[in-house]
Design a protein around this nucleic acid. Structure first.
Lengths: 154, 154
DNA sequence: GTCTTTGCAAAGCTTTTGCATTCTG
DNA sequence: CAGAATGCAAAAGCTTTGCAAAGAC
């Protein structure tokens, strides 16, 4: 993932981040605001360590602070956490339409998917199981374009 | 999960288990065969520790043996492993139509779902992302009938 | 000034691994 | 008998936690 320093800067989305945090009764600290910008501008969901490594380039921050921020933001529904089939926990901003994920089983690259077939079956699943459905996790697994190319070269 | 001792017994599905293991070039050990029966008769997918606790009632077995057996059987596509949103790794027998899972976000009960909407969108996802799709993981999250009842009582 | 957040180090939990022993075919 | 599987104990990897210091409002 390539991310420009300026993308994460405190001043980006400053008011918006401030409001989001305040409405969740969370202090609008510099570190949380920069963390939000980091996820805002990422083209894939990130895990705690990736976020830590990106933020470290700009500010002093501790890995456990990242973990604590991520879990506070997730509890407040500001972020969505997803655990992937390889055990990797990744986070994305919870805008109306957070997206599903596809992972490459060769290089582990993660990309977003813009399709969600779930809404169509919520009612049937509810009837089938008796559960009230409140959410879902969907991960596709496959081979990314790069890896397909490499395979075809051989 | 309630499971009768006799369900897991070595003699159940003996020939079948033996063949399955042999075709995967795995030794047909007593412990693996009983482990398979344990999953065969479970009405929900189980994690390593649950399997360990069930098997321990009948035989001497070590938790790391359970882990090693599960990963050998998963590599051989005899089992399917799924990691749930709470980080719990569960396993089920990989019969033609292994099933998706729904977890109760209150009591963490896991049940099977008999519906899969994924096949219909594989092509679109592939076009959208450029990936070749080889699999998927789907977990529904909700509130189970028991917990709904408890909520309504209050 | 009070309550929340953060840093640091230590602990926790699940899963994996090394090595000697036992078992399968 | 040769190679695979197992038990045991230790290590690994990721995440959480306790406590004192720093920061937000």
């Amino acid at each position: 993932m390539t991310l420009n320093k300026c993308d994460c800067s405190l001043d980006n989305h400053r008011k918006e981040n401030n409001n989001i945090l305040k409405s969740a009764n969370l202090k609008a600290t510099k570190k949380r605001m920069i963390l939000l910008n980091c996820l805002r501008h990422s083209d894939a969901p990130l895990n705690a360590e990736e976020i830590y490594n990106i933020l470290k380039q700009d500010i002093n921050i501790n890995l456990s602070t990242v973990y604590r921020a991520l879990s506070a933001l997730t509890d407040a529904d500001i972020l969505v956490k997803q655990i992937l089939s390889d055990g990797n926990n990744v986070y994305q901003i919870n805008n109306k339409n957070h997206r599903h994920i596809i992972t490459c089983k060769i290089c582990n690259k993660i990309s977003y998917v813009n399709i969600c077939p779930i809404n169509d079956v919520i009612d049937s699943v509810s009837k089938d199981t008796g559960y009230e459905i409140t959410g879902h996790n969907l991960e596709f697994i496959g081979i990314c374009p790069n890896c397909i190319e490499k395979i075809e070269e051989n």
